[in-house]
């Protein structure tokens, strides 16, 4: 199926309805395997079992950023290519991205309490993650404030693009702050610094989280399309009564 066919919301609905159960099923299977692997993974010699929070924390951090990345592409879709599904994709991604970012912040806090002795520090990494979360909430608030979806879409797209520029700036500008969070360790030159016994389950969990993200995103897009149809039907209903 060509990408052009996906532009048709009806075709998209058919495809979504057909693929959501499969994608959901695959998510469950990969999660089952990932959680099993994570449970079997050895405890860290310093952190003990606390290290297992990382199996939730790291994938949700990635997906929080993936969500904004997806919204950025969708924002181009709305503003430049005027793709009819772009703003649906953007609107559907925002709450999911926000949820994963919140999950990342919460799991990080729970890990930080025993390991660093505090739920929160104003560290570069944590702070930019928090700002990402606030930007998500701002986009959601914007979507909720403007009733007409096509007007809200353009405003939200502009905010998303500005946020996409702003996020790296926030990240670099706060780097002079004291950093407690560890540096890049999974993907880096010279190989990963994490033991394979932990790295493998982490990667499986990351795949499972990504699958979960796209299952939820597809379902949310479907719901948004249906919601807009309801809105159109209601507008027609108002006209019909006259």
């Amino acid at each position: 199926m060509a990408i052009a066919d996906l532009a048709n919301p009806s075709r998209f609905l058919t495809l979504a309805n057909r693929s959501i159960p499969w994608l959901g099923g695959l998510t469950v299977i990969v999660f089952a395997y990932g959680i099993d692997q994570a449970m079997l993974a050895p405890d860290d010699y310093q952190q003990g079992a606390t290290v297992k929070i990382m199996f939730l924390h790291v994938p949700s951090a990635w997906l929080g950023m993936l969500g904004w990345g997806l919204m950025t592409v969708a924002a181009f879709g709305t503003l430049v290519w005027r793709h009819p599904l772009a703003d649906v994709a953007a609107k559907a991604a925002a709450p999911i991205g926000a949820a994963f970012t919140l999950l990342c912040l919460v799991t990080g806090s729970l890990w930080g309490r025993p390991e660093w002795g505090t739920y929160w520090v104003w560290d570069a990494r944590l702070t930019s993650e928090l700002v990402l979360f606030l930007l998500y909430l701002a986009v959601i608030a914007l979507w909720r404030t403007v009733e007409d979806p096509s007007r809200a879409a353009r405003a939200a797209a502009i905010l998303t693009l500005v946020g996409a520029i702003d996020l790296p700036i926030i990240k670099f500008s706060v780097d002079w702050w004291n950093t407690l969070h560890q540096g890049a360790s999974v993907f880096r030159l010279g190989g990963s610094t994490i033991y394979p016994t932990i790295l493998m389950p982490l990667l499986v969990m990351a795949v499972a989280f990504t699958l979960l993200f796209f299952t939820l995103h597809l379902a949310a897009m479907r719901n948004e399309i249906l919601r807009r149809r309801v809105r159109t039907l209601r507008l027609m209903q108002a006209n019909a009564v006259s």
């Binding site: 009733e147 209601r234 507008l235 209903q237 108002a238 006209n239 006259s242």
Partner: peptide, 8 residues
């Protein structure tokens, strides 16, 4: 049940 925003 229609939101009044939709009314003419």
């Amino acid at each position: 049940d229609l939101p009044s925003a939709y009314l003419s």
